[in-house]
Write a protein that binds this DNA or RNA. Structure first.
Length: 493
RNA sequence: GCGCCUCUAGCUCAACGGCAGAGCAACGGACUCUUAAUCCGCAGGUUGGGGGUUCGAAUCCCCCGGGGCGCACCA
């Protein structure tokens, strides 16, 4: 358990000098640990550089030997050895009493010890923070998944891969922004508090605004507001931000998650496929240096072009059954029932086909592959397919056996949109609490004219999992959602 | 929400029906070139919580709680 009561005994005794009140207000750092390794890496064993530097970080290891001591100081760039010595280091008797995890700043000459370790030979040093609690086993770290997620500040010091996962995530967002800016896309922010939840089929979180005395919903997707910006004349917009869905937590789902949503006027879903494969492969190259990945032991080559295949084609490939939305409902329902899935009597052939795809085919795809042409019945915001009746121009990119996102030629006809909303409202009334709510505000906006537009959503957390080769979404979210710790008590019921 | 697994010292783990232990950290000490330093010493526990079975429970059973995985839903 993650220590909900605080430490069971007293906190570790405080030794040595330096109450917190004596800690300085600032410390002048001249070099990061990695810079010292780069600049003075050429020193030979026993050599002294004559150059004095100041470094700061946590003391992660400490080996004392009477009148001499060696410590590993870790900062955000890496580690550097501190070498303290009687006659050279002030307050040596306090230095050797530092606790692992204490945060210090130290100044001294860059030297390489006789045994060959590049070091800062400490002349002066100052305590910057005490670690009143320990960071766990210095060799094995912290492995308890709950502690790692709940106390990420501990995990970050105990397990170096955690830092690198979060750094990769940060680089992904940076690379994505730079590529989109270069493509003429404008980054915007739209409301997170929505009067009506819309833009996706999902259950929302509800909250309340006191002054307005109105219920508001945390957005399940920014889609509708972004399309209103297109109506307003932003021809290329994107937003990178959080959405919230009141649904289960799993290794691939967090109740709050980050997406890129992007709208591109005058383009269709075919154009969007080109953008997606270039963007994802490009970001991979920018961040990890290659588009040829290995994910969970299997190769995954993101180099464009990606395979494009319709849902019907992929189902046929996987199951041997030719399926389409125009077939007899009973026949399709029988096929789905064979998979063991429950069949709801209210489902039409579109929903049945989508369910059948998910049960039989999706998990078997490795990709990258664009799965094209979804049933209209499960796509209330996508435009009818120019060729196939009952279908829409929609695709999902599937990578590593999981959908990475969702895109379509946007539905631009206000009358069609109203009809789709009415159908959603009918389902909602029939008990489907993931169905959409009719949004008059959005329909009014559509009346002003939405030009042909392609829209896209990509899961940033999922992309970060791919590029860090991690199987659990917690590994790429700094503070994943967990059940709240109970205040002031233990876990007894 | 359902099923399975799991919870022992601050951390990492033993003990699996018969005296709750080790390593690391912490605490006290030795040591002037260490690399998870080493050595000596000391301390640390309502075995997640509660109930039951038993001569005896960390261990078996039940309830509750946390976490993990799978199913369902979804990105």
């Amino acid at each position: 358990m993650a220590d909900p009561r605080g430490p069971p005994g007293p906190l570790r005794p405080q030794r040595g000098r330096s109450a917190v009140s004596e800690v300085p207000y600032r410390f002048e750092v001249t070099h990061a640990a990695s810079e010292i390794a780069q600049r003075w890496g050429g020193l030979s064993a026993g050599e002294e550089s004559g150059d004095v530097v100041s470094v700061a970080g946590r003391v992660m290891l400490l080996r004392t030997q009477g009148k001499v001591a060696f410590g590993e100081l870790r900062d955000s760039s890496g580690s550097i050895q501190l070498f303290a010595q009687a006659g050279a280091t002030e307050d040596l008797e306090d230095f050797v009493r530092l606790n692992l995890g204490d945060w210090i700043g130290a100044s001294g000459e860059v030297v390489r010890t006789r045994r060959g370790e590049l070091s800062v030979r400490v002349r002066t040093w100052t305590l910057l923070a005490r670690a009143r609690r320990s960071f766990g086993d210095k060799w094995r770290g912290v492995t308890d998944t709950e502690t790692r997620s709940r106390q990420r500040e501990v995990d970050l010091w105990a397990n170096e891969s955690t830092r690198s996962h979060l750094l990769v995530r940060s680089e992904i967002v940076r690379a994505m922004r730079e590529r989109l800016w270069a493509g003429g896309f404008v980054e915007v922010e739209t409301p997170i508090l929505h009067p009506i939840p819309g833009g996706a089929l999902a259950r929302p979180f509800v909250t309340h605004h006191n002054a307005l005395d109105a219920d508001l919903y945390l957005r399940v997707a920014p889609e509708l507001y972004l399309k209103r910006l297109v109506i307003g004349g932003f021809e290329r917009v994107f937003e990178i931000g959080r959405s919230f869905r009141n649904e289960g937590i799993s290794p691939r789902h967090n109740p709050e998650f980050t997406t890129l949503e992007l709208y591109w006027a005058y383009a269709d879903y075919l154009d969007m496929m080109g953008l997606v494969e270039e963007l994802v492969a490009g970001v991979a190259s920018d961040v990890v240096g290659t588009a040829r990945l290995t994910y969970q032991g299997r190769p995954l080559d993101l180099t464009p072009p990606w395979r494009r295949a319709t849902m019907a084609e992929l189902i046929l490939e996987q199951t041997g059954h030719a399926v389409d939305v125009g077939m007899e409902r009973d026949e399709l329902a029988a096929l789905l029932a064979e998979t063991g899935a429950a069949v709801d009597p209210s489902w039409g052939t579109g929903k049945l086909m989508a369910e059948y795809y998910e049960k039989t085919t999706e998990g078997a795809l490795w990709g990258p592959v664009f799965v094209l042409d979804y049933p209209e019945e499960v796509s209330p915001l996508a435009r009818r397919h120019r060729a196939g009746p009952g279908l829409v121009e929609r695709f999902e990119p599937v990578l590593g056996g999981r959908e990475l996102g969702n895109a379509f030629s946007e539905l631009i006809d206000p009358d069609d949109q109203r009809a789709r909303f009415v159908e959603q409202a009918r389902r909602r009334a029939a008990g489907d609490d993931e169905a959409m709510v009719l949004d008059e505000e959005y329909l009014r906006a559509m009346d002003y004219g939405l030009p042909p537009t392609a829209g896209l959503g990509i899961g940033i957390d999922r992309l970060a999992m791919l590029l860090t080769d991690t199987a659990n979404i917690r590994e790429v979210i700094a503070f994943p959602t967990l059940r709240p710790e109970r205040a002031g008590g233990d876990s007894a019921g």
